[in-house]
């Protein structure tokens, strides 16, 4: 997939490599790089995923990084049905309605 100039994209870059992490971090963190993801409008003519590009962010900064996602969507949601939670809620509703299910 190709992104065109002016499109809203997400880029990715490495700020600190695995060996450059702060001395205080635990080993599982020290073993991986410090990564940055930021979104903005593509400044290059056109680009494919993985290509190093420049974007203009909402604050007006020019930032360089590898093109990661074109028009990223917000992926967080309300999650699955959680029976344990819904059961707890129903118990409380029954109590409020004057039922004897409480306790």
């Amino acid at each position: 997939m190709m992104a065109r100039r002016g499109q809203w994209v997400q880029i990715h870059s490495i700020l600190l490599k695995a060996g450059e992490r702060a001395p205080s971090v635990p080993s599982d963190t020290a073993d991986v790089p410090l990564e940055l993801r930021v979104r903005g409008f593509l400044q290059d003519g056109s680009a494919s995923i993985g290509q190093v590009v420049r974007i203009l962010t909402a604050a007006g900064r020019l930032v360089e990084g590898a093109l990661e996602i074109i028009e990223p969507r917000h992926v967080h949601d309300f999650g699955d049905y959680v029976p344990e939670l819904s059961q707890a809620g129903d118990e409380l509703t029954i109590w409020l309605a004057g039922g004897d299910e409480n306790e």
Partner: peptide, 19 residues
């Protein structure tokens, strides 16, 4: 982002302060 801010998202680590 809905309010119009730039959001810089980092991976885990206190070096966020560096950035």
């Amino acid at each position: 982002e809905a309010y119009g801010a730039e959001v810089a998202q980092l991976s885990v680590g206190p070096e966020l302060f560096y950035y």
